[in-house]
Amino acid sequence: MQEIDFKPKAFLFDLNGTMINDMEYHTMAWHSIMNEDLDANLDYETVKKEMYGKNHEVLTRVFGKNKFSAEEVERLSIEKEKRYQQGYFPHLALIAGLDNFLEKAKQAGILMAIGSAAIPFNIDFVVDGLNIRNYLGAIVSADDVETSKPDPETFFKAAKYLEIAPEDCVVFEDAPKGVESALNANMKCVVLTTTHTIEEFDGYPNILGYINDYNDTKLNALF
């Protein structure tokens, strides 16, 4: 693990598990769909391991290619997001300290963007529900990329929209595939330990540090 010893020009945030601590609710929604609707008989931990990428990619990993028609994938995806939002809405909140961190970054002139595999429906649910759109110079969603993380496209596009070189960005992530995406984009990364253990990130040389939330004082070195 490297030290936080440089001053980035932009912060790129994954959304789920990184700005909000909601991955449990995504997993519960998929677990419900896969077992109650699709009779997959999968335990919670098995479903949790598949919680990255676009909805159709999740379905393909679990059930194989061509199991569902495009119409079925769309129907299942919409139902999954409805169950997620219904379950998470009473708990909708920024991760501790992020409100102050966003304001500090704005005052410091650091540009910010979201780079997420979430669909716009869910991103808008969070961004407008928590009134943080004014901090963001760009949003890259699942609909904006051809290939999901760990491909670097999501973060490359976010940096491009901000007009910042990749090497001048710091990515905030909570998942190994997201850290790998940042690495593939030549970006350093700060990991939120909301979803995965530190041991699950072994071998990634671009990680600057691990934080439980944005009150961690080591983040002061970024400004």
Rank of each mutant, 00 (worst) to 15 (best):
H56D: 14
D202G: 13
D168N: 11
Y88N: 10
E50K: 11
G137N: 03
E71H: 08
N220K: 15
L208S: 11
E173R: 00
V171G: 07
S148Q: 09
I110K: 00
S116C: 07
V47T: 07
K9V: 02
I4V: 12
K49P: 04
F68C: 13
E180C: 07
W30F: 13
A182V: 03
L92S: 11
S181I: 06
F101Y: 11
A70W: 09
E200Y: 07
G97E: 08
P90N: 03
P152R: 01
L136V: 05
V145K: 02
E180R: 07
A175T: 07
E81M: 11
E81K: 10
T197L: 12
D216P: 08
E103A: 13
V170H: 03
S32T: 15
L12E: 03
M34W: 11
F89W: 09
A185M: 02
N134L: 04
L222P: 01
W30L: 06
F89E: 14
R133E: 09
V145L: 06
F101D: 01
G97Y: 08
G97F: 12
V73M: 09
M187Y: 05
T154N: 01
V140C: 05
V171I: 14
A185Q: 09
T147E: 07
A165L: 07
M51P: 12
D5H: 14
K149E: 07
G53H: 01
N134I: 03
K106G: 01
D168P: 02
I198R: 10
G203Y: 06
A105I: 02
F63L: 06
D124E: 14
N41L: 03
A138E: 07
D14A: 06
G178N: 08
T197M: 08
P90I: 02
N41H: 14
M34L: 15
L92I: 10
F63H: 09
V62E: 00
S148I: 06
A159M: 06
E146R: 15
D144I: 02
M23A: 05
A185T: 07
K157T: 09
E57T: 11
I198P: 05
L76D: 09
F156P: 06
K80L: 07
A118M: 08
V140M: 12
G17C: 04
D39E: 13
L222C: 02
E72D: 14
N122G: 05
R61A: 08
N206V: 12
V145N: 03
F125I: 15
Q85S: 10
I211M: 01
E167K: 15
D174P: 03
H196Q: 05
